[in-house]
Design a protein around this nucleic acid. Sequence first.
DNA 1: CATTCACTTCCACAATTCGGAAAGCCATAT
DNA 2: ATATGGCTTTCCGAATTGTGGAAGTGAATG
Lengths: 262, 262
Amino acid sequence: MPAQKTERSGQVQSLVRALNLLKVVAAAADGLTLTEAAKRAGLPVSSAHRLLSTLQQERFVRFDHERTRWFVGVEAFAAGAGFLRSRDLVTVARPYMRHLMEESGETVSLAVEEGGQVIYLAQIECRQLMRALASPGQRAPLHSSAVGKAILAYAPCERQDSVIGAMKLERFTERTLTTEQGFRKALGEAHHRQFAVDDEEYAIGLRCVAAPIFNEAHEAIAAISLSGPKARVTDGRMKSLAGLAQAAAGKITREFGGSAPV
Amino acid sequence: MPAQKTERSGQVQSLVRALNLLKVVAAAADGLTLTEAAKRAGLPVSSAHRLLSTLQQERFVRFDHERTRWFVGVEAFAAGAGFLRSRDLVTVARPYMRHLMEESGETVSLAVEEGGQVIYLAQIECRQLMRALASPGQRAPLHSSAVGKAILAYAPCERQDSVIGAMKLERFTERTLTTEQGFRKALGEAHHRQFAVDDEEYAIGLRCVAAPIFNEAHEAIAAISLSGPKARVTDGRMKSLAGLAQAAAGKITREFGGSAPV
DNA sequence: CATTCACTTCCACAATTCGGAAAGCCATAT
DNA sequence: ATATGGCTTTCCGAATTGTGGAAGTGAATG
């Protein structure tokens, strides 16, 4: 009797609910209680429980009896890993990333753009105590990350326009580029220099440089970045770090069977 | 009967089907056509289509129009990545360790390598009066422990070299491997047999066998060992104990979301 | 032009899922 | 010892929802 939302026809709504529940659980760093998960997913507790039980049976989530909390399960991970295989960019890139970390001493990340956001695929952490953290699967906005700018700087104009049009240029620090004009200027510079920069635009004290990776159609499909604290990534070092990132990106591009636009 | 098993209670069937379908799609390296996916999941084509459409709407799968094939989508990856953040080796391993102790009757230990040493994370003690003891947090040298050898045997060559270069191969018993040559030979054997041995190399009368545990990048990040007095861990029993340890290590690896190197 | 192979839509009916309510389970507080 | 509260788990009748065979579309191949 409670009036239900009008759902798209032809869709399996219990599945939609379950997937949202899965996202909710996956997004929580330290697990969720049933009631909390139900609340966040906007479901009655008993329904959430039934769905979670089923997800658990298939090992997509797991219930920790000690802490009475729900966590993501192995199968979700295994299924998601298939995503990386389907674009075996990660496999190709990993050795170069490791080498780049060794020669630069900073954390190396690999990311792609999806739906107006940056999504990190892999990361090689440096051995320093102070280091940037962006675990695989994490998302970041395009306008305040070096990788995002590196990718977008090489996108065709129409795509740039449509992506920028849909963005809201949220502010994170006082250096974040929040005007379309400023953002476009940064993209232009990135294109011209062939690498992009993030100078404390997402987090205070964090600097990154990123270089694009191209596919066989000369499209920038990904980028790798070097990131570290401002104290280590000084003005003087930026250029040389960018050079290293560019060199690695070039090698990955070639190994991946791609090439930079003419 | 202390804990009631929630078996077979109301499960959401459409969800189970969808998850299996997702697994099927994820398992295929180069995508699947609808009909192929349906066949592998044992579903009628129209049902598979409806489920895939819904999964696609939530971006758990994606449909490549050019190739007319289905692939895993970003959201599956993002959700699965949460697993990496929440997983805890000790929690995952403990039940398997307990079971291993029951079936072998010997003490089971879990250890990782850090800074050229072995660090014990957990231990399940056997019921025997005479038993090995290594409390959590305790350290041991790499060259005179089965776990150390199991882990190092699977490290990349450069890493092996740098770690060995920094070691001093201290002698503890008359069987301790104190020459680099002897140690390297032992590592080679361990790699070949897929398990490592410590035959009174650390303490007189103490024998251990250990098998490596891998992460998702196929790196040996930990090992589990069975250890006991020479009188019980006889030459004849070594092989079967090693087999048990290997089986358990394999299960832990899988549950942890990892896999052995190819 | 016929054939194959794959995707997509339709629809009536029954099986499935839904969710409120109530019962359990453990803590900690009174 | 008894109460309280937060959380999990099970129940069950009602009706919404998913089911799958069959027919339709479209593209590519012989």
